[in-house]
Nucleic acid binder design. Structure first.
Length: 862
RNA sequence: GCCGGGGUGGCGGAACUGGUAGACGCGCCGGACUCAAAAUCCGGUUGCCGAAAGGCAGUGCGGGUUCGAUUCCCGCUCCCGGCACCA
């Protein structure tokens, strides 16, 4: 009588065993160090499927490396500051600190139930003063070095709540709570000079060969290095400076456009109420680039004239809403002939459009209809006076040289990347350690007074930062002169917190330094895993911060993350009902019963609670707004952690989005039951640990070949390719073969023992609890994670014959068995013994025969 | 709008360097076991034609390169991620 698989009993017992043997500690064990890091979670309340997936990937990689004999660090912490805690506080009246810490408690318990080999002694939370004091300390160093500086920046302003809004809180140009049209407002903020590092951040992308190409491309485009020219246009007594990537088109500049915030626009508006009104109109709406880039292009003539630096022509100066103050100089020379946005604007306002570069592919230029060819770099200059006939690149150089001669411009490199504004007008964040003194100005908090501790009992109400009304925090003597002064109430962008947490994990207990020598021992992170949505901002800031810490002499690494895996999103079906006013109520998929037709399509969906129908709303990213988050906890309770882990690794490759499916979880559960039963039935006949078979019959030899092919494939999939879905598929496939195999002698039983020992080790990174239990059932001592990774026996891979596919004109017509390495003529001869092949070849002339050795033969006839 | 990625059976996906399209799993169909059901086990399952052998079509759409294209190239389309204050 064999035991059945009961994860509810098995899993906690196995976790106790791990804990008793200290298996999850990074410092335990020997071997090379391997730092496996997952993006730490925001403690939003409950673990969601995205977390589950992220940490399972990380755990599979960690355990795989542990089995390779490495000393693995897999830490965990909490990205604990941020907006959702303030929103929860407004909704429930609970201070963000309490809400956050309660969530951490709950989520830590959930993570522990999933059996992740996390070194919990290194746990950290960014809202703890012991962590954020080092944000403050380092900020002061950056201030000393001139990397941190103060200037104004544009924010979304809700005129009713009198508060700054995050981009997320601006919906269709209106405040999310008040519905009031949002305004742009200029306020003073602290910035970090990330642009000083733009070149290095761009160039060292080339060294990151363990990163996905798409992430490197996105970062390179974000940094956006472009070679061009800075050109000065005289405008009365002022000068309008512009940057252009196409100085070769200078002779086609027909007007100038400046941002609404540009000083010249302001100046021109003083005597021009119509223009002032237009500029005010430009001040409405959100500040996000997506909003600005999609809004209708609008502009107004300022009446000012700029002088073309070469022709001396007067160009009208317009204010245009598509010119960004934050990019370049806040002004452009408009070349409608060769820039799509300028073209569209010129067409709308009847401004001249002039072709100055011929089309590279020839063809007619039509100034009523834009074609993408007009912006292509190529062709030669036309309508450009003495520059006519030069190629576009010769024209580029000649015009820049001419501008330099006249003192009106020079070649320049421009980055799209802007300096990083880190000030947030919010309570639940790391206080910026500055004191404002009426006499001394902005005074840095002295190091010995750090940390500036955030009061934790405040409850924000939506109308601004409660720190502004908290006298205990606000009032403090000036460190310089001792006079009454006020603390800065802005807090830091939470991206600051997440830009160096991976360094703190290496020495979280150090209360005298930000990091110590242990950082250099563990860094760089060997494997980083996180959502693709972080491909640009977080990863760029973390790279930047690492370089800042390097330049401060705190660490030696240039780049923090050697290898990066960007996991896809977790998606789920959405369901809703619409009321008369068109307002949608979203229902959680777990509460909806779906009837499917015979072919698998959805017939009907009803809410289980009332049996009434709900509408399917499509498959979307699991999110609160659509109420389609599936709680992993319920699944863990039903099936155990191993089943949920197995499904989430099996359902899709890690980089792709994953559609949640309860039915798929059932499949994973069935496989584990079969695996358990298979091992048990072998064990029931007696275990034979450590012995290997020799003399095997043909069927057994084939099974052993398949076993060692599987070991090779799974190792490659888990290590090099990181396609855990195909690794699991290969294990399942082999198990199917193994369970069909019947042992008829001692050697075959030894093979079955070898096979189960190998299967258990191959699956161990994915389903660690079950694997650990089965390892012991197979008569092994100690932990499966200390038992090593199975080795491929090369001699088992040799086969007597291979199957070669035979094609005629590219269509499969047969298969032949030949000796490995058989040459073209002998494979062709074998193929001509196949009736079906002969039928397609006879009566025709063989024109060509192509052999892909051991795989395919294509006979081309005609 | 700009940058990046994706689209393959009823569904999730596989096919790694241009070489058998659909591995593995789900679902469905049939069968075994059972008084019955569940669980489990066995078989089938891209579509069309065919009793079968086999044939034809087929990887979002339109074209191209090649003996051979899911894979490479050109054009389109739809979906997803990011766009600097969501994290």
């Amino acid at each position: 009588m064999t035991e059945s698989y009961r994860p509810g009993e098995l899993e906690p017992a196995i976790r106790e065993f791990w804990e008793a043997h200290d298996l999850d500690r990074a410092e335990s064990g020997g071997g090379e160090r391997f730092y496996c890091l997952s993006m730490f979670p925001y403690p939003s309340g409950k673990l969601h499927m995205g977390h589950m997936r992220n940490y399972t990937i990380s755990d599979v990689i960690s355990r795989y490396h542990r089995m390779q004999g490495h000393r693995v660090l897999q830490p965990m912490g909490w990205d604990a500051f941020g907006l959702p805690a303030e929103n929860a506080a407004m909704a429930n009246g609970v201070p963000p600190a309490k809400w956050t810490r309660d969530n951490i408690e709950h989520m830590r318990g959930q993570l522990q139930q999933l059996g992740f080999a996390i070194d919990w002694e290194r746990e950290l939370a960014t809202c703890d003063p012991s962590y954020y004091r080092w944000n403050q300390w380092f900020f002061l160093r950056l201030l000393e070095r001139g990397i941190a500086y103060k200037k104004t920046g544009t924010v979304n302003w809700d005129p009713v709540d009198q508060t700054v809004l995050a981009n997320e809180q601006v919906i269709d140009g209106k405040g999310w709570r008040t519905g009031a049209p949002v305004e742009k407002r200029e306020i003073p903020m602290y910035y970090l000079r990330i642009t000083d590092y733009a070149d290095e951040l761009l160039e060292s992308l080339d060294t990151l060969d363990g990163w996905p190409e798409r992430v490197r491309t996105m970062q390179a485009n974000w940094i956006g290095k472009s070679e061009g020219a800075e050109i000065a246009f005289a405008c009365g007594l002022d000068t309008i400076k512009v940057f252009t990537t196409r100085p070769d088109t200078l002779m086609g500049a027909t007007f100038m456009a400046v941002a609404a915030e540009h000083p010249l626009a302001r100046q021109a508006a003083e005597g021009n109420p119509e223009l002032a009104a237009f500029i005010a109109e430009c001040q409405t709406g959100g500040v996000s680039e997506a909003d600005i880039a999609t809004q209708e292009k609008k502009g107004m003539d300022t009446g000012l004239k700029a002088v073309h630096p070469i022709t001396g022509d007067e160009l009208p100066v317009w204010v245009a809403n598509y010119v960004l103050m934050a990019y370049g100089e806040g002004a452009i020379m408009a070349v409608p002939g060769h820039d799509e946005r300028d073209f569209e604007f010129a067409l709308k306002y009847g401004l001249p459009i002039r072709q100055v570069v011929s089309l590279p592919e020839g063809g007619e230029y039509d100034d009523r209809q834009w074609h993408d060819d007009y912006a292509v770099k190529g062709g030669h200059l036309v309508n450009s006076g003495r520059f006519d006939g030069l190629s576009w690149s010769e024209g580029f150089d000649a015009i820049v040289a001419e501008l330099e001669k006249r003192g009106a411009g020079h070649a320049r490199t421009q980055f799209r990347l802007r300096d990083w504004g880190i000030s947030r007008q919010r309570y639940w964040g790391c206080p910026i350690p500055i004191i404002h003194c009426p006499d001394c100005g902005d005074v840095p908090v002295p190091d010995e007074d750090l940390p500036v501790v955030l009061p934790e009992e405040l409850v924000p109400d939506g109308s601004g930062n409660p720190l502004n009304h908290c006298a205990d925090f606000l009032d403090t003597p000036c460190p310089k002169c001792g006079a009454a002064a006020k603390r800065e109430t802005d807090t830091m962008d939470t991206f600051v917190d997440s830009s160096w947490y991976f360094l703190r994990y290496t020495g979280p207990d150090n209360d005298r330094a930000m990091v110590d020598e242990r950082a250099d021992q563990w860094m760089p992170v060997d494997q980083y895993i996180g959502g693709i949505e972080h491909a640009i901002l977080h990863l760029l800031y973390a790279r930047f911060w690492t370089k800042l810490m390097r330049d401060e002499g705190l660490v030696q690494v240039d780049e923090p993350f050697k290898r990066l895996l960007t996991q896809g999103m977790v998606l789920a079906e959405t369901y809703y009902r619409e009321d008369e006013s068109g307002r949608k109520t979203w229902y959680n998929p777990a509460d909806v019963a779906v009837q499917r037709d015979g072919k698998g399509g959805i017939n009907s969906a009803v809410l289980e609670a009332d049996g009434q129908p709900v509408e399917p709303g499509g498959i979307e990213k699991m999110a609160k707004s659509k109420n389609n988050g599936v709680d992993p906890q319920a699944l863990v309770d039903t099936y155990g952690a191993d089943t949920v882990r197995l499904f989430s690794m099996f359902a899709a490759p890690p980089e792709q989005s994953l559609e949640w499916s309860e039915a798929g979880v059932e499949g994973a559960w069935r496989f584990l039951k079969r695996l358990h039963a298979g091992v048990q039935s072998h064990v029931a006949e007696g275990v034979l640990p450590g012995r290997r078979p020799d003399e095997l019959g043909p069927a057994a030899r084939e099974l052993r070949t398949r076993l060692h092919e599987t070991i090779g494939k799974v190792g490659d999939d888990m290590g090099r390719r990181q396609t855990f879905n195909t690794a699991i598929a290969a294990i399942m496939e082999f198990c199917n073969e193994l369970q069909r195999f019947e042992a008829d002698d001692e050697a075959a039983r030894l093979l079955i023992q070898e096979a189960w020992e190998s299967v258990v080790r191959l699956i161990a990174p994915v389903t660690p609890h079950l694997a650990e239990a089965l390892w012991r059932d197979l008569g092994q001592d100690g932990s499966v994670f200390e038992g090593g990774w199975p080795r491929v026996d090369e001699s088992a891979l040799e086969r007597a014959a291979v199957t070669v596919v035979v094609q005629v004109n590219g269509k499969v017509r047969g298969r032949v068995e030949v000796a490995p390495g058989a040459d073209r003529d002998s494979v062709q001869a074998a193929a001509m013994a196949d009736d079906n092949v002969v039928r397609h070849v006879e009566d025709k002339t063989v024109r060509k025969v192509i052999l892909v050795p051991d795989k395919l033969l294509n006979i081309v006839v005609g």
